[in-house]
Design a protein around this nucleic acid. Sequence first.
DNA 1: GGAGGTACTGAACCACGGTTCAGATCGAAT
DNA 2: ATTCGATCTGAACCGTGGTTCAGTACCTCC
Lengths: 215, 215
Amino acid sequence: MAYRRTDNVAARLADNRRAILNAARDLVSEGGFAAAQMTEVARKAGVATGTLYRYFPSKEELCRQVFREVSAREMNVLASIAAGKASAATRLTEVLYTFAGRAVRGRRLAYALLAEPVDVGLAEERARFRRMHGDIFAGILADGVAAGEFPPLDVRIAAACIAGAIPTALIGPLAPESHELEEKGERVIEEIVRFCLAGVEGAGAKTIGDMRRSA
Amino acid sequence: MAYRRTDNVAARLADNRRAILNAARDLVSEGGFAAAQMTEVARKAGVATGTLYRYFPSKEELCRQVFREVSAREMNVLASIAAGKASAATRLTEVLYTFAGRAVRGRRLAYALLAEPVDVGLAEERARFRRMHGDIFAGILADGVAAGEFPPLDVRIAAACIAGAIPTALIGPLAPESHELEEKGERVIEEIVRFCLAGVEGAGAKTIGDMRRSA
DNA sequence: GGAGGTACTGAACCACGGTTCAGATCGAAT
DNA sequence: ATTCGATCTGAACCGTGGTTCAGTACCTCC
């Protein structure tokens, strides 16, 4: 009488779900989220349009899921560096190089995650992503301050500055068409990292506010 | 026989154009570009929907125009500081404080210009806006390097870092609902400026790339 | 004042792309 | 083999909001 969900079927369902997510992910990493239209995703996943809605309640939810999976991979890479036991300065340097380097090597995907115009739902997801970057940076900074490696500073704000500086400085070069980075990529990355490290380490002077107030 | 466009009429046309732009601008500074729907703009400007299309070929063009006008005002403020004859360090400090300060005081508008999710057309305009910021920062930095006030650095990249760090660090607080900044605004701004100045001034060490290569 | 052109109106139109759903298909249980 | 629910299909549907355009009012000039 009743109907039991066989392992076989369960597996096929899982496969479908994966196929859909993979199709969406592939489209995104080729043409950004703009290219992830439901019809296209379905075609590429080898299912009918309607089927998508048996696995995801809406396009927004599907895209969010893709965003989370892709960004989680990035975050894990950074998090494992951050969790290492090298000095804070070393870990920070490593994290910055890795962040920037991966963005450059995966231009298209990085553009989709960081800069492509997206609708509010994804913008929310992107904000979360940025916040996670901030958390990682802030963690390292806090270690460094505690260990006396860095001068005292507001780690949350400094972390946010870093999280903003890197993508923006890469964006021109990050744009989907630009091949600029293939040549001077390393050069650019080094300069960006340099700026961020200096921003952290040169926190000594309390003179700025004063300088200004007396201006 | 022929028809001549009287001064009277010309004035009325100009008035209409202004009324439309003003209506759009007001809507944007209240609810972001999302709130600038053609029907609303027309209503607020006191004209019919169709009339909008006698003055602007499309919504995109209208919005771009609004964006340009609003951002031009900001740019002028910064540009006039940058053109001053104080030391580069002073001018940079002034510009950063002004940029961040104005963003904080005009939260909603700043959000629309810098962070609100928008479609590709406006994103393009926003990129231009960022680039102009970069140009201003870069100009000051170049002066400073030439004068020996700052260590040698790639001014374009450093400028891009600054242009990215400020908005991102303000964004959480900049979000339309957040009132966080009303209290700690000054505090946050000082820390951001500090970070950027340090990033510029602490450019001495050529050690970073080396440190990494030997890691 | 009327001829000939310009400007304005706003309801109807339309494109786009996400979403639905009645019917076909498939798998499990008997 | 048959039943029955779960799953899949894809063409049709629909909401949104920008855009159009036939009709009207308005100017200018003679």
